[in-house]
Design a protein around this nucleic acid. Structure first.
Lengths: 108, 108
DNA sequence: TTAATATATTGCAATATTACGATTAAATAA
DNA sequence: TTATTTAATCGTAATATTGCAATATATTAA
């Protein structure tokens, strides 16, 4: 019997890679960092903070929302965004686990 | 004085977003996971492990190499890859720091 | 009501990513 | 030497991402 390729990826990897992909852009990292450091997290503040147009920032916010990394509360005409720390913890846990199982000495 | 947009992103965010972007793909996450769990890390094993062609796996390996997440040692006609745990730790540290500074209660 | 403000969405161009077959290069085996 | 093996690269098609101007939507203010 030949060597077997996996048919697909595990559910865990598919979900996590989506979250990590969303994090892998300077603008979206800046947004996440900003939300972590700023108590009042109004969209317009983020737009002012970033070197991008309002439309582009809104698009990045949507991507972060899509993977549930942030959550937006409508407050009148503004939207207050905040981090979903649970998702961020999932990412940290995944990589911490990898670090834990890595056998640093047997490898090249 | 108006509100000031940042001209660009910090060096730290630019470097880290590159690493995280490289990690944000199921194939590359699978490679990283495989390398962490497998003592002998020959390229061909990774090719067999993944649902992708040799050319595509090689391309993914190059992307991981480009951001210095993995390192390949040529051993005769094979290449033995291993993780650069230092880079992985940088990612963990960055997100851990964000978790640390996040003020969960002041936010929406 | 109309105007102003804050966000989201649409449409679109430029660029990047993903995947693969075919080819190349480099090392070993016959 | 020639064949085989292993991995990287090239060329290319399909798709996705990024960014923005323009527009739409929705809430508050006048």
């Amino acid at each position: 019997m030949g060597l077997t390729k996996t048919d697909t990826y595990s559910t865990e990897i598919i979900e996590l890679s989506g979250i990590i992909k969303a994090l892998g852009h300077p603008a979206r990292m800046a947004i996440v960092s900003y939300l972590a450091n700023t108590p009042n997290c109004i969209t317009n503040d983020i737009v002012e903070e970033l070197p991008l147009s309002q439309a582009t920032v809104s698009q990045h916010l949507r991507e972060l929302r899509n993977v549930d990394l942030i959550k937006g509360d409508i407050e009148g005409t503004s939207v207050c965004y905040c981090l979903n720390t649970e998702k961020l913890n999932k990412v940290i846990s995944y990589f911490s686990e990898i670090m834990k199982v890595t056998d640093k000495f047997k490898c090249c």
